[in-house]
Amino acid sequence: MSQKEYLWNPAPVYSLPVRGSDARLPVKRIFCVGRNYHAHAIEMDRPVDKATMRPFYFLKDPSTLVESGASVPYPTGTTNYHYEMELVVAIGIPGFRVPADEAHTLIYGYAAGLDMTRRDLQLVAREQGRPWDLGKNFEKSAVCSEIVPADALGVLDAGAIQLEVNGQIKQSSDLQLLIWNIREIIADLSQFYHLEPGDLIYTGTPEGVGAVKSGDRISGHIDRVGEVALTIGAAE
């Protein structure tokens, strides 16, 4: 069979380092959970009632992925560029319509992540009932640390999550305050998608989100998972 020819080079495989391994984890899709801590939902003027609501999601393209420690330019089109510190779950085996009590079996590992957001554009879209893509799914907006295999950690039902900007604490919470926990998120998402190895799930951010500017340094920490860091460069 002859080799396929393309008009231009296909997109590269986006991947992340794995702690304790020379192999890298190839990223397939990036799912993000919206408003998954009560205090953040209130902060965004959109309270959540778990009894009557279910999780909602938005996606970031794998090309938005940035490894921890990078410096990224202040993005175009915004004057209100926000950080959101999140636990990231990496899927390791396929799953579809998975019950919550089995959902943890799909997990390959965890990471610390930043869901960088053009907040002004997101809020305009929200108020107009439009998709959030311009506010969320833009270049260099999904920052992620190395992946820590889950067999060393089990299921993370609790653990401190914190973010600092220039050494000042801005976000400080605990994974036990997730409205929908890891098992529930995976189970619910698998009702709508065939989850695949390499899918990442950003599980939501605590309260304390805020704006950064050129020159700022962001550093985040999740107990037993690790650190994530990002420097904000000059605008392009």
Rank of each mutant, 00 (worst) to 15 (best):
R35H: 01
S15Y: 02
H82Y: 15
S173F: 01
A111K: 05
D115T: 11
S63P: 01
K60R: 13
G109A: 00
A187P: 14
L134F: 03
G210P: 02
R97F: 04
L156C: 07
A152C: 00
D49K: 07
A41K: 05
V66K: 01
I182A: 07
M85T: 15
C144T: 09
H221Y: 06
T76P: 02
S68I: 05
E207T: 03
D101N: 12
T76S: 14
A11G: 04
Y108T: 00
G198Y: 10
A23Y: 03
V165T: 01
I185W: 06
Y37A: 05
H40Q: 12
R119F: 14
K136D: 05
S15Q: 13
L134C: 05
R46C: 02
E67S: 09
K213W: 10
D216F: 06
I91P: 08
N166M: 13
R224D: 11
P75Y: 01
Q176D: 09
L163G: 00
T79E: 11
V98H: 02
A11D: 15
S21D: 12
P94Q: 03
Y57R: 04
R126E: 10
E84M: 12
V212Q: 02
D101P: 09
R97I: 04
D216W: 09
I186D: 12
G77N: 13
S71A: 08
L189Y: 03
T78D: 13
M1S: 10
L177G: 02
Q3M: 06
Q168D: 12
H40N: 06
T78I: 03
A41P: 07
W8M: 11
A211T: 06
V88H: 10
G92H: 05
V13H: 11
E5N: 05
P75E: 08
L65H: 14
V27Y: 10
A152F: 02
Y202D: 00
H40Y: 11
F56A: 05
G113Q: 07
P75C: 09
T105C: 03
G69V: 14
D101A: 07
L59M: 14
K4M: 07
V13I: 13
P62A: 10
V148D: 00
T203P: 09
L7T: 09
N80L: 08
E84R: 06
E146D: 13
K50S: 11
G198M: 00
P55Q: 05
N36Q: 08
Y193G: 10
S219Y: 15
M1N: 06
V155H: 08
Y14P: 00
Y83D: 06
P206S: 06
R97L: 09
R118T: 00
